[in-house]
Amino acid sequence: MQEAELIRMAQSGDQDALVELLRSIETSVYRSAYYILGNEQDALDAAQEVLIRIYRKLDTYQEKAKFSTWVQRIVSNVCMDKFRAKKETVSIDEHELIIPDRNNVEDEILLTGLSNDIQEAIGRLPKQYRMVVVLRYLEDLSYQEIAEALDLPLNTVKSYLFRARQQLQELLYDYQKGGIG
């Protein structure tokens, strides 16, 4: 069943269609949250919150925008809320003291050294840059769609993306030189 038809059925009150629609976006929501927030637990919490919000506010979605863009906008909002809450409460483990759980998804990423470096480099980007990079490379959104998702001007999105890539390039170059651990 196509996404548009699922959305219409869910909006008309079909509970099964609504659950199926949520299942179809579950992985992408979690992936974005994971790369934006940087750890599995926060990503799971954020993904649950995003899916609940979509469940409750699906009636407000209009077909003018792309459904994935609308979903990613909710993801970015929830992640920003998480950033704020984390900043207000505890900020110790934001850069340090991250104890990896050997039985979770992070181990799969640690198997490849390159992905480990780029993931760590992404974690060092500013939040806005990180969101733009995630939406561009993980969700494969265009400039315009990123601008709609983050409610930013198009040129700002380009600027964020270009600067993010430049910073990542510099960070990875330093990793190769062994300067930053």
Binding site: Y30, N104, T112, L114, D117, Q119
Partner: peptide, 18 residues
């Protein structure tokens, strides 16, 4: 850098969030 970003592993939740 762009190629590394494109090759980021697709993470999957350990259980069904829905």
């Amino acid at each position: 850098v762009s190629e590394q970003l494109e090759q980021l592993p697709p993470v999957v939740p350990s259980f069904s969030i829905v």
